[in-house]
Design a protein around this nucleic acid. Structure first.
Lengths: 246, 246
DNA sequence: GAGTGGTCTAGACCACTCC
DNA sequence: GAGTGGTCTAGACCACTCT
C-alpha cells in the first residue's frame, strides 16, 4: 500500500488547513462527512481525524465536532521574571506572564521527607525534611502550569514560605531576608507527552499536546542550593524566552 | 461508561511498566495477546496499545512487537556552548553535546530571499538576500536536530560562512573576524507535535514524540541582529540547560 | 512459515451537545 | 430529537520481521 486511505484523507485536510480553508476554531468535516464523501467505514474516518488530533492540529469535542486548534502562547521571560529587582521590589515573579490576563493561583503547603531526587539536588541528609509548595496556575480559566517547590525545612519552616501567603515579593524576598538570597539559577528544560494525571490536571485535549518540564534549582551566592522547583507546563500555552551573553 | 475497556487495559500496562515489570526495550503483550487475555476485538487491543504509544511510553515496530521506549537524552548547555571562549578557541559549538558519541553533520548552503518572519527578525529590506545554512545532525546514527541559519548576505557572502566548511570556530569565529562578533543571544523555546515531514526527517516514532523549536537570534554588541537560527529537535533526545544569575 | 503490527469493513450502541 | 464523536465487535487481507 503506497499511502493508506486514512493518511491521504488526513493529508488533504491538513493541506486545506494550511491553505487557510479552515482557520483556528473552525469546524472540520466530521466522521459522518468523511464516511459519505470518501465511502469509507467509520473507523477509517476516525483514523484520519486521529492523525490531525495526534499532531495537535485539531481537537475533538464530544457531541460537537472536530475543530482546528487555536494557539496564542504567552511568553515566559526566564531572566526578567527572576531578576533581583523584581522580587526585591515586592512584585510577584508570576505577574510577568499574566499581562492583562486573568491569572489565579491555587497553593497548598506541606512539610514532608523529600523525594530521593530532590534530596540529592538539595544536598540533604535522609532525615532532613522539606517544605513543599504545590501550586496550580489558572490563566483565563484554563490551567496552564503545575509547580512544586521544595525548600530545606530547617531554613524556612518558621518563615512565611511555610504559609500559603508568602507576602510581597514572594518566597525569594523571604529567602533574602533569611540571608539566603537566590543568586544563580539553573533551568533544565525537556518536553514529553503528558501522563494521564497531568493531562487531567492541565485539561489537555486527549492527544496532540506535549508538556514541558522545567526543573529549576536556585543557588545562593555561596553556591548552596536553597530551592528546587519542578514545573510542568501546557506546551501549547508557552514560549520560553532566555536571554544571555557570549 | 465509567472507564472504557481500552483505557483500563492501557492503565494496567502502564502500571506494570511503572512497577518495573517491563523495562526499557522490553516487549509488551501484543495485539493478539491482549485479544486472548481480555477477550476483546483487535481494534480494541490496538486502542489500548495506542494510548501508550501516544504517550510516548511505548513504540510499535511492525512485524516485531510493541516495546517500552528507552530515553537517554543529552544535555545541551545553552550558555557553555555559546561562550566566547569556545568558538574563539576554534572549537565547534556542537562538540559540547557530542561527548564521546558519534556525531555527523550534513550541511547545505544557499542564498535566497528571506522568508518574511526571518526578514523581520534580521531587520532586512525586501530586496536584501540571506545566506542560508541548513544542517542535519545525526547522533549515533539517528537524526536528532534540524537547523537552519540565516545571515545577511551583504555581510557574509564573501566569507567562509557561505561555504560548507566554515573553518575553525565556525560561523561565529568568522563573524568576529568580519567585525560582527555575536555578543548577545536570545533563545525562544517551544514544544509541539511534529509535522509529517519533520517526523520523517527526524525518524520519530509515529506518535508520542514531540519536537522542540528553538529560535535563536544573535546580536552584536551594537544590538544588530546578525543571525537567526531556527532549530527543530527530537524532544526525547535532549535536555536544554540554561544557567543565569539574578 | 509463524507471528507481528497496519489497514479496513459494516455494522452496533452510547453519551454528549445543540452545528 | 438530530447530529456528533466515543466505544466496540468479528471478521478480513496485507507487509513486515524473525520473539
Amino acid at each position: 500500500m503506497p499511502e493508506p486511505k486514512y493518511r491521504q484523507i488526513a493529508n488533504e485536510l491538513r493541506a486545506a488547513i494550511r491553505a487557510g480553508e479552515y482557520g483556528p476554531g473552525d469546524r472540520l468535516p466530521g466522521e459522518n462527512d468523511l464516511m459519505g464523501r470518501y465511502g469509507i467505514a467509520r473507523m477509517t474516518a476516525r483514523q484520519a481525524l486521529g492523525v490531525l488530533t495526534t499532531e495537535g492540529v485539531a481537537a475533538a469535542r464530544k457531541g460537537a465536532g472536530v475543530f482546528v486548534r487555536d494557539f496564542t502562547p504567552i511568553i515566559r521571560e526566564a531572566l526578567t521574571r527572576l531578576s533581583h529587582e523584581r522580587w526585591a521590589g515586592g512584585v510577584s515573579i508570576w505577574s510577568a506572564d499574566a499581562e492583562g490576563r486573568d491569572l489565579s493561583i491555587h497553593t497548598t503547603v506541606s512539610e514532608t521527607g523529600p523525594p530521593e531526587h530532590i534530596a540529592a539536588l538539595l544536598a540533604l541528609d535522609e532525615a532532613e525534611r522539606v517544605v513543599v509548595r504545590a501550586r496550580r496556575f489558572i490563566l483565563d480559566g484554563k490551567p496552564v502550569l503545575l509547580s512544586t517547590s521544595y525548600f530545606p525545612a530547617n531554613l524556612v519552616a518558621d518563615s512565611a514560605i511555610a504559609r500559603e501567603d508568602t507576602g510581597p515579593g514572594g518566597s525569594y524576598a523571604r529567602l533574602a531576608e533569611l540571608g539566603h538570597a537566590p543568586a544563580h539559577f539553573r533551568e533544565d528544560v525537556r518536553a514529553r507527552m503528558p501522563q494521564p494525571e497531568e493531562a487531567d490536571a492541565l485539561e489537555l485535549p486527549s492527544a496532540g499536546t506535549p508538556v514541558v518540564d522545567i526543573v529549576r534549582t536556585a543557588l545562593t551566592d555561596a553556591g548552596a542550593v536553597i530551592e528546587v522547583n519542578e514545573m510542568t507546563l501546557d506546551a501549547s500555552a508557552y514560549i520560553l524566552r532566555y536571554d544571555f551573553s557570549a
